[in-house]
Design a protein around this nucleic acid. Structure first.
Lengths: 235, 235
DNA sequence: ATATGACCAGAATTGCATATCCGGTCAAAT
DNA sequence: ATTTGACCGGATATGCAATTCTGGTCATAT
């Protein structure tokens, strides 16, 4: 539970590989059965290692899960950035928002994190209420204000309300998945262009928003985040 | 369970009044404790009548609850219509949408119905899955198409996607209430004008949409609905 | 003609003893 | 130097009888 990694032999390649394999196994099982009902033995078996081996990497099940969530967030950041960089309009508000949705909706654990899904997060949520699980809103009001200064979002908007709107929309898109049958929900491929149009019309400045400026801010933001992560900071 | 009201003496004023009092009591208790944990005796006591009296109005607890939900929906329709009529822009898409949200967000039972809240709907949901609880989306794709023909919604939009967007936003606004602390959520008074602007810019035609035409459609729709209700049809 | 609440039977809950499970450890095996 | 899995104790699940609760009824009171 003390932030410092206590894994003595994490240097060799085989161990890094094994660590990832264990996290993969844990993610798969926890998404399916939930944290409480997934046992450390289950995870070890799924990863093809012994239970003891798991405890060579993390001092407790909770620490394993924390690491798993952190990795999930880091992977999100990487994939998000990649999509943004590859898309000329990736730095516009509609671009960055929809790319983040695309990445998130494909990752069940991120969805669970976003909705604070008790089925999946289980008792971990009650215990670690503050910590990894604290409200994470990548597109906060603060973020919107930065984007306004950079000419990515209309300057006359109330940043709090724009952030609120985007947060509601994102949350609704997750919840509607489990409320309606699949055939009643438009595919992401179909929905994304329409949503982009909606967001652009309502939140972007005349002319569509400065994509390059947007990319620059996100690059800086993620670099700073990765810095913090490299220093072992979990926040 | 057969749609016909079996309440033999529902004609006299005192009984109509008592019926409403019982429904009020039931709504209050069920919103607070959930359907399963609210007993018929509780409801009777809260309404100041005997248990037997409750069964003079409805043949079973489930029927009482069905009546309660139907009344909730009818009240929604009335209040929604009133707000629309009083607002010159009430017939625009942003007007009708936000008025519906305003009415809904103030009524806990409607929110529960909208989110299929198991805490409140309890076992009734599993038993009556089809029935009153079937997906009700007042602003369906069908509805949006009508509004397009009437010049309330931009004609070049994909109606399915516009309806999807509005449904997600509405759902997100309900869920975000229980996810964030109250002080992090903008008040409706503050949010409504901004949301109206968002919706107008993205979904309304140039010039803001034909409010009168919109009102006419909703009037017709609700009149037809009330007709059906008067005939005892629950759908 | 209405309204009541004691009453009924089945369902749900409680209490509790027993059995199982699971996070975490560490002596032994590799 | 690594890795394993048998083992430990507290937590959780299970089985089951006794008890309480609750939806629904109806003889009686008003």
């Amino acid at each position: 539970m003390d932030g410092s990694g206590r894994n003595v032999e994490a240097s060799s390649t085989v161990n890094v590989e094994r660590e990832q394999r264990i996290l993969d196994a844990a993610t798969k099982l926890i998404v399916h059965y939930g944290y409480d009902k997934t046992t450390v033995s289950d995870i070890a078996r799924e990863a093809g290692v012994s239970k003891g081996a798991v405890y060579l990497h993390w001092p407790s099940k909770d620490d394993l899960f924390t690491a798993l969530l952190l990795r999930e967030i880091q992977l999100f950041a990487v994939e998000w950035m990649e999509m943004i960089e590859q898309d000329p309009d990736g730095g516009t508000l509609q671009g960055m928002y929809l790319h983040s949705l695309t990445v998130m909706l494909k990752r069940p654990m991120l969805k669970a994190l976003m909705t604070q899904d008790r089925r999946i997060l289980g008792d971990f949520m009650r215990r670690q209420g503050r910590g990894v699980l604290q409200r994470r809103n990548i597109m906060s009001a603060e973020f919107i204000r930065l984007m306004q200064e950079a000419g990515v979002v209309r300057a006359d908007l109330d940043a709090d309300l724009a952030a609120y709107l985007l947060a509601c929309l994102r949350l609704g898109m997750i919840y509607i998945e489990e409320m309606l049958d699949d055939d009643q929900i438009p595919s992401l491929e179909r929905a994304v262009p329409a949503l982009a149009d909606f967001i652009e019309r309502s939140l972007a400045p005349e002319g569509g928003g400065n994509s390059e400026a947007g990319k620059r801010i996100i690059r800086a933001m993620l670099t700073a985040l990765q810095e913090r992560w490299a220093q072992g900071q979990i926040v």
